[in-house]
Every structure is written in C-alpha cells, then in structure tokens.
Design a protein around this nucleic acid. Structure first.
Lengths: 142, 142
DNA sequence: GTATGTGCAAAACCTTTGCAGGTTA
DNA sequence: TAACCTGCAAAGGTTTTGCACATAC
C-alpha cells in the first residue's frame, strides 16, 4: 500500500500537468510514479529497464520524450552531474548534489544553499545547478 | 608575437606536466597552447577542427585522450554545463559558469564565489561546479 | 632501447527522429 | 472525431577502444 503523503505529491504533479494542458497518457503517468517511488536520481535507461518489466510495451522513445517534456515543464530537474548520461530528480526544490567518484552514488545536499541570484553581470538567471564531487561517507569509511 | 604573460602560464603548465612524469608529445603541447590562446571553453570537436588545419595528422583520439589526461591531472577543468558534450576550461581557478540558453554562449562568473567546503554530511569534497543558466546580457538587449 | 603515446577506423553508447498506428479528451 | 502521443527501428552525435606504428626520454 502506498504512502499517503507520496500519493498527495503525485496528485499535485498530475494536476500541474493537467493545468499545462498535457495529455495524461500511460507512459507519462507511470514514469511520474516511478520517479516518486525511486528518488534515486535514475537515468533514462534505469527507468526504462524497471518499467518494461511491468509494462513490456513501453519504448525507450517514450521515456526520453517524457523526461524531456517533464524537464521543460519543470516537473523534474535534469542533472548533468555525470558526463555520460542525464539523471532525473523529481524533487524540484532548489538543492545541490554530491557525486561520489568512487561508488557513483548521488546524494541530495540540503546543507549547502544554492546561490539565489536573479542576475549576474547583466545576465538573467533562470536556473542554477551546484554539483560537488568527492568521496562519500560510505567510501571514506571503507 | 605571443603575449609574454601567456607564455609564462604555458611554461608553468608544461612544468606541471613534466613533474607528473607526463611525456610532452606534440599533440599534448599543441592542445595546451590552443586552450591558452582560445579560452572560450571549447569542445573536443572545436579543438580538433582548429588544430587539424595546422597539424593535419592529428587524430580525434589524441584530442580525447589528451583532454581526459589533462582533466585527471587537474591541468584543465571539464565542464558538464551542456548535456550534449563536454567543454574544457584552462583556467582551473575555482569559478562558476553561466550558459545562455538562447545563444549558447558560456561565460566565466567570478562575481559569485563557489561554496568552499571540504566536507558535506560526512562526504569528502574534492571538486565543485556551479552552473547558472538563463538569458545573457546580449540576448536580453536584443 | 624501451616505455609510452599516436593515428586510424570501427565500435560503443546515449539520445533523437520519422512515421504508421493507437489513444486521450 | 481531431489532436496528440506511442512504439519501433534506424539514425545521429559524442566518446571510447584495439592495434600497428611512431616518438620522447
């Protein structure tokens, strides 16, 4: 049985999509659900592999299309913390991220605030990403 | 005739490479020079296209190998400010970057300091990247 | 001379695209 | 029903790899 709080957040995002005139198709709904239930900053491939077990007909194209749409609408944040591939974060509250260069884990960082700037040297700021790289607590210990 | 200050910086980086036991081959030297003379955060492709005019025998593989080596040694910083491809910055002094989502220009940002943290939630921090995205001054005006 | 690096071409990998068929509102 | 979306397969673009030859020290 699903967490009530999570269910409420999900409904909020669904409402946001409806407001924006987005058609609520099966791929979009199950990807949204997946992101809430797996807030581990998954890649498109991880989402695809997990979902195709339960929904064998889903395609890679739909995963990529949906993630791109969600990013454009601000429903998810696309992280470019890795060179190879994008990762997706359903938590769109501004926050930093830490990537362990040893184990590859990615952590949310709420301890260090993002610089909140509307303008820098005459440039209008719309979004901000702050990435830290190093050795995570688990890898430091071992 | 080349700037004397630039020549000095170049010699410093060459010395750093020698110290680290890196063989100073032609591709490595000309890429280093290129980066100093073109501090525009070029991509591997841009470097390749520019250099092959003067050194037709240079290969893509050498560009990629060299950039990876330089990044590992801390001679350049690899920017993941764009999803599609990496960009390289010879200025390894910690600083932020701004990318214009309209024209694609990438600016150095010295006005906003990077958070200087050695440790976050028990994780050991080694490097930090701060990226701003928005509309640049030139695009705002037009 | 020997370890190390280069150049070439092909492969690997992530992401996008075109289009016929299907689904949502 | 009409607009929009999905799934499939192929293509596109960046980066990596294997190997014979070449080069730096």
């Amino acid at each position: 049985m699903r967490d009530r709080k999570l269910e409420k957040q999900l409904e909020e995002k669904r409402a946001l999509l409806r407001e924006k005139g987005v058609v609520l198709t099966t791929p979009r709904l199950i990807i949204l659900e997946y992101l809430f239930e797996n807030p581990i900053h998954p890649t498109a491939e991880e989402i695809y592999n997990s979902l195709k077990r339960r929904f064998p007909s889903i395609s890679q194209a739909s995963i990529y299309n949906t993630l791109k749409l969600f990013t454009k609408l601000g429903v998810v944040t696309e992280l470019m913390i890795e060179k190879e591939k994008a990762r997706y974060d359903i938590n769109t509250t501004p926050h930093a991220h830490f990537k362990c260069i040893k184990c590859g884990r990615i952590y949310d960082v709420f301890e260090v605030p993002l610089p909140q700037r509307e303008e820098i040297s005459g440039h209008k700021v719309l979004t901000t990403q702050l990435y830290f790289y190093g050795i995570c607590q688990k890898c430091v210990q071992s």
